[in-house]
Design a protein around this nucleic acid. Structure first.
Length: 586
RNA sequence: GCGCUUGUAGCUCAGCUGGAUAGAGCAUCGGCCUUCUAAGCCGAGGGUCGCAGGUUCGAGUCCUGCCAAGCGUGCCA
């Protein structure tokens, strides 16, 4: 209907141009929107006001001329000029009934569109370091990322969901060393745990597993481990130097093979946990991409060679720098340290080169908002590799600030003091967690009160939407219990009986679903979908309280049942897209 | 200091990319169950859209300057 009206308006503009009322060269981007107030009809355009100035005409006069030039259409009952120059369209309510048939015919396909067909999009999200279990901050990225991916798929894009596994680098060494020290404790060595080590209980769990299987195989006397190690922070030293020395010591005492055993035990264990966690959260990936793999297959070298060849690298102070400041970054960045090691950024350049080489039309990275300063350098890298920086779209997710009632919860991965995603799921369930996470705009700060969210009796909006779905199911059960017949075809033929205000309102909300979905997908804003579902549920609950569905009049009953079944279908389509359950009873 | 983001009802947040009288959920107050599930519905109160200018027919939305908060500003990841 919206597209139809836009076409009509376009024709009116063309004919006015032919008459010379408006100059040919005036651009006319038609903005047609649904009215908020029923007095303003169903759709309205501000076109006359937009064109008034270039056409040198009074907006209301121009609006009158536009209306006069508008081709007749049976679906449009009235067109009027209002206010400062709005053109309001009133739609024949009979044409609105078609939506019920359409939903019924298309079923779970209703709302899908084709605008993304033929385009490949990569969505990389979560990508938390495998140094510990996912916490509630990652949960938001997971819910948001999978919702964005789902939306893009719904409008036709081919979506590749990917998790970048940071399985190389210093953090992983710190983890491995932490595990080894816990293991030594298990062996009975009097270990003093480093301030900068990973203190979470899972580290000890992994260490105990290793001890159970290997006994003393990896054991070294603690005296040897600590010999000549610089002081830790608690003793007036530098915690970074302390842990780095411990890592080096672990490697030298254990030897390459044994060190790798510990390292792998940590990586495998934690990564499996993350995979399992996300799966239970309803998040699926097409690919888990290993950073180490980029190192091993020479991609990092290749990427740097390409930057070297195009003149974007230089040497200074013994390190290799990327001249990103020439491509919009604040300053140049080191890619290879003085000690010969690549920086994290170097492998990230290689990773994005890899993404580009895979031929995606659009690359979406979803990051925590604390990484926003990183965007210019990655975009610079993409440009330096000869690609269009606009191919990369970085979406930021603000971390949720956690509260327990009034008290703010401090979180630190290192200290192990954090609420895990799994804990959250156990307490509030997958559905509530997903819904809650995606309810707000992603770049918006979000206060997450655990007491409220973990309270079973809390007024959680997800129940509100699910309840509407369950209620329709319940009505259909009642129909059977009362032994009443249902004739879908007759109901479709009798849709025009649905003239109550609540019914017309539902029809128009249903019709909005596809365009809402398209917008939510293209703007990467799943909260639009949540908002819509709450609105649809609200319309339904209001209708439910105002009118009886299982009335004696067969025709009317059939029509109403068809309407509420369409509501149920759309609720289900939206909830499934968000991977939230659609209970038949509650 | 500089950069990015945010500032809307007591609280948590929407606001369709510049439109008509700024909305919803909690919370507060008042109503609705012998009738398809009250996890629901109806109603009321509650606002200097951080502040001050500017752009124009029209600004919560755009531009500038302040104020406040968060994050970033490593040869960390």
């Amino acid at each position: 209907m919206k597209k139809k009206l836009e076409a009509l308006i376009q024709q009116a503009v063309i004919s006015l141009k032919k008459e010379g009322v408006i100059a040919d060269d005036i651009g006319a981007a038609i903005t047609l929107e649904r009215t908020r107030d029923a007095q303003h009809g169903d759709f309205a355009t501000n076109l006359a006001m937009m064109l008034a100035k270039p056409a040198k005409m009074n907006p209301r006069q121009l609006a009158e001329k536009l209306v006069a030039a508008l081709p007749k259409d049976s679906a449009v009952t009235k067109v009027e000029v209002a206010g400062p120059g709005f053109i309001n369209f009133f739609i024949d309510s009979r044409s609105q009934y078609d939506i019920v048939k359409k939903v019924h015919e298309l079923g779970s396909d209703f709302g899908l569109s084709q605008i993304g067909v033929g385009k490949k999009v990569q969505v990389e999200f979560v990508s938390a370091n495998p140094t510990g279990p996912l916490h509630v901050g990652h949960g938001r990225g997971a819910a948001y990322g999978s919702a964005v991916a789902g939306l893009l798929e719904a409008v036709g894009f081919t979506v590749h969901r990917e998790y970048y596994v940071n399985d190389a680098g210093r953090q992983m060494d710190i983890l491995a060393t932490s595990i080894w020290l816990r293991y030594l404790e298990e062996c009975g060595e009097p270990v003093r745990f480093p301030d900068n080590g990973y203190r979470g209980g899972y580290v000890g769990d992994i260490a105990r597993d290793i001890y159970k299987n290997a006994k003393d195989e990896y054991r070294c006397p603690i005296g040897l481990v600590l010999e000549d190690i610089p002081k830790d922070e608690a003793h007036g030293g530098d915690k970074e130097a302390h842990i780095d020395a411990l890592i080096a010591r672990a490697k030298s005492l254990l030897g390459t093979m044994h060190y790798r055993d510990i390292f792998q035990a940590g990586l495998t264990n934690i990564l499996d946990d993350i995979k399992n966690d996300l799966q239970e959260f309803g998040v699926e990936y097409q690919e888990w991409f290993s950073e180490q793999h980029l190192m091993d297959d020479g991609s990092v070298d290749l990427a740097l060679n390409r930057l070297q060849a195009s003149g974007h690298l230089y040497e200074k102070d013994g390190a290799t720098w990327f001249a990103s400041s020439q491509l919009g970054d604040e300053k140049d960045r080191v890619v290879r340290r003085e000690n010969g090691q690549y920086t994290y950024f170097a492998s990230d350049i290689a990773y994005h080169m890899n993404k580009l080489d895979r031929g995606f039309d659009l690359i979406i990275d979803i990051w925590g908002a604390d990484h926003h300063g990183y965007i210019p350098r990655v975009k610079a890298a993409i440009q330096a590799l000869g690609a269009d920086a606009n191919k990369l779209k970085v979406l930021l997710v603000q971390f949720a600030t956690l509260y327990r009632g009034e008290e703010k919860v401090q979180m630190s991965t290192r200290s192990g003091d954090f609420v895990t995603l799994r804990q959250l799921r156990d307490e509030v369930g997958k559905d509530a967690a997903r819904f809650f996470y995606v309810m707000r705009r992603s770049e918006q700060h979000m206060d997450f009160d655990l007491q409220l969210a973990t309270s079973k009796t809390s007024e959680n909006p997800v129940y509100y939407v699910q309840y509407a779905h369950a209620r329709v199911c319940s009505v259909l059960r009642q129909l059977v219990e009362k032994g009443l017949p249902r004739d879908i075809v007759s109901g479709m033929n009798g849709l025009t009986q649905l003239a109550e205000e609540h019914e017309l309102s539902l029809l128009s909300t249903l019709e909005r679903y596809p365009e809402m979905l398209e917008r939510a997908a293209l703007t990467h804003e799943p909260h639009q979908l949540i908002l819509y579902l709450r609105e649809l549920a609200n319309d339904f609950h209001t209708y439910y309280n105002a009118h009886q569905f299982l009335v004696d009049d067969d025709k009317l009953r059939d029509a109403r049942l068809n309407l509420i079944c369409a509501v149920r279908q759309v609720l289900a389509n939206g909830l499934k897209l968000l991977n939230i359950n659609t209970p038949e009873s509650m």
